[in-house]
């Protein structure tokens, strides 16, 4: 991994060394080092149970690390937790707004807690509702909101007093593409404003779209760190997916492709699918020609960027677990990582 740094002039928004958090016998976070430049987006990429949420919760002063230390915006997360809290906002993985209250009530509540008087808090709430296109739903209880609206309210709630550093824990998990794009625009707008953002995600393309630098985490450890270009380069230039017409021909297809691509070819869970990371996309056409010559029917084929699974496979030797969107696994997601192993 090259040591090329983006914005190496700016001070560090987050500097962590050797963070460890243990739940029972599970080391949810197992020695994480981090250096996040102010004014940049840093992506924390990994599957469920990798320790992303636990790391964020430590940095947001919700959990006290068992070992290691971290400075957030120049303040120690344990001994100066109050100073950290006055400069950061957290948008948790599961909507950190109150379902039973209306959108406006949520924002007024937070405004009051942060020190606005009633009039200011209401005015601030209305400004935010307008900016986040929620004015029409302001008087409705949040439980009636769609996933995208809830997420926007959630982010708006983090900006009642704009923080210097915003933690976004899986901001787009479970959102439709349109809502996801909206969230991305919001994140870009914030960064344009000078806010630093630490976001966790399970999606490579999200990290790719938003983050200046990415840390890939697995089993509580950072296993790779760099810009998205650097990470992709470490994984190979692309990956090829092939679906066959007939599952019985798969072993034959595997050997033909292996021979012609010169790289290992993996069998997917889907009995007609094969994938391979290719260093040289030029060879793909030839390999497909060989398949046709061997009489193996191909029903679908694509050549594309490596997926998170492939990044993981390349970096860890095991695939990323497919996340399940379970509603109340917030902490268990991290505790259950033995199951994920």
């Amino acid at each position: 991994m090259s040591d090329q740094r983006l914005g190496s002039q700016s001070p560090l928004a987050i500097e962590a060394s050797g963070l460890v958090k243990t739940f029972g016998s599970t080391r949810a976070v197992d020695g994480v080092d981090l250096a996040v430049r102010a004014g940049t987006v840093y992506g924390f990429l990994g599957p469920n149970g990798a320790g992303k949420t636990t790391t964020i919760r430590m940095l947001a002063t919700l959990l006290v690390p068992d070992e290691g230390s971290a400075q957030v915006l120049g303040h120690d997360i344990v001994s100066e937790a109050d100073a950290v809290r006055s400069k950061v906002s957290l948008t948790g993985q599961f909507a950190s707004v109150d379902d039973e209250l209306t959108g406006r009530e949520n924002l007024v509540l937070l405004g009051r807690l942060l020190g606005y008087d009633k009039t200011q808090a209401k005015a601030r709430a209305d400004d935010l509702l307008d900016a986040f296109e929620l004015a029409d739903a302001a008087g409705r209880q949040v439980e009636t909101y769609s996933g995208g609206m809830r997420r926007r309210l959630d982010i708006a709630a983090s900006l009642v007093v704009p923080p210097e550093l915003l933690f976004l824990d899986e901001p787009t998990t479970g959102l439709d593409p349109r809502s996801r794009n909206q969230v991305w625009e919001i994140v870009r707008a914030l960064v344009g404003q000078g806010t630093s953002v630490l976001l966790t995600t399970q999606y490579l393309d999200e990290a790719d779209q938003l983050a200046n630098r990415i840390a890939v985490v697995d089993h509580g450890k950072v296993i790779a760190e760099g810009t998205s270009a650097e990470l992709k380069a470490s994984v190979g230039s692309g990956s090829v997916h092939v679906r066959l017409g007939d599952a019985d021909r798969r072993p034959e297809a595997q050997s033909v492709l292996t021979a012609n691509l010169g790289v290992p070819v993996n069998l997917e869970a889907d009995p007609v699918s094969l994938t391979a990371r290719v260093d040289d996309p030029e060879r793909v056409a030839g390999a497909l020609g060989e398949l046709a010559r061997a009489g193996v029917a191909v029903s679908e084929f694509s050549l594309g960027q490596p997926s998170l699974d492939e990044v993981f496979l390349a970096l860890t030797g095991h695939p990323a677990e497919v996340p399940e969107d379970d509603d109340d696994t917030r902490e268990r997601a991290d505790e259950d990582e033995e199951d994920a192993a």
Binding site: S86, R112, L113, L114, G115, Y116, Q120, R124, D127, L128, D130, A131, F132, E133, L159, V161, P162, Q182, E185, I186, R188, A189, L190, G192, Q193, T195
Partner: peptide, 22 residues
């Protein structure tokens, strides 16, 4: 979207912390 979000972030003075009673 970008303009609205940036405007709403710029247009806000930081209040003094709320009291415990409040």
């Amino acid at each position: 979207t970008i303009n609205a979000v940036q405007a709403v972030c710029a247009s806000c003075e930081r209040p003094a912390p709320a009291s415990v009673l409040s």
